[in-house]
Design a binder for these strands. Structure first.
Length: 216
DNA sequence: ATCATTTGACCGGG
DNA sequence: CCCGGTCAAATGAT
């Protein structure tokens, strides 16, 4: 009966669910694609495209929900705009902003930021498995970000010189402070979350022999 | 040999 | 200036 209590809770839940879905689909993709590629590379490519479309739909839904919402433009898309500090006096706000990383902000905040989606469309998602999204990437840079624990890696599509201008960045999220420490081992990817931001579109063509088995 | 990753330099925007 | 994104030479891997 008390459905749609307030837009805040609903949107927050929806956002969390969508992110969860993206994460799961990403894991599934990382599981399926390498196997399938060993069997039939053509099917693997089709599957990769399908996975891309599914995730694309999901991210589009997120974008439309949270950017075209009721007048509130939220920077769900990762831009350079996030590091903006509005209140100089509020140290707590700065801390929150720092902790929030570049994305995954709560949904319905009052913070109506400006949309600087000009020329750069970027899709960001969080996953345990940042590798094997069905495309091949070549790393071209790595930088330490301001106060971040882990470096940010910059990748371009392997076929950049030919067709593809797609780009992505991978940043491991800080697994610290109040997080449950599962295995205190020499931090492996288990349980680690990565924020992956995709820029540009893949125009890679199919049919190239991809030597896979770069599985970690 | 080729190709990918590494790593500091470089550069442009805020 | 600082910060962060890219370049490119050196290094590593195959």
């Amino acid at each position: 009966m008390d459905h749609s209590k307030n837009c805040d809770h609903g949107l927050a839940e929806i956002e969390a669910l969508l992110r969860r879905e993206q994460e799961l689909v990403t894991q599934l993709r990382a599981l399926i694609l390498p196997q399938l590629h060993n069997v039939d590379s053509g099917s693997a490519e089709l599957a990769a495209q399908l996975f891309d479309d599914v995730i694309g739909c999901s991210t589009s839904v997120v974008s439309k929900l949270f950017t075209a919402g009721s007048g509130a433009t939220i920077e769900l898309i990762d831009d350079k705009s996030l590091v903006r500090k509005k209140s100089p006096s509020t140290a707590a706000a700065a801390a929150i902003d720092d902790k929030m990383d570049e994305q995954a902000k709560p949904s319905c905040i009052v913070g109506r930021k400006r949309r600087r989606n000009d020329g750069k469309r970027s899709r960001s998602l969080v996953t345990n498995v940042p590798h094997y999204d069905g495309h091949q990437w070549r790393k071209y840079g790595q930088k330490n970000i301001n106060g971040r624990q882990h470096a940010r890696s910059y990748y371009r599509c392997t076929y950049t010189e030919r067709n593809c201008s797609a780009t992505k960045t991978v940043q491991q999220q800080d697994r610290d402070g109040g997080g449950s420490i599962y295995s205190a081992d020499a931090g492996e990817d288990q349980g680690a979350k990565y924020t992956v931001v995709y820029y540009g579109d893949h125009t890679c063509k199919a049919g190239d022999n991809i030597s896979n088995n770069i599985i970690d």
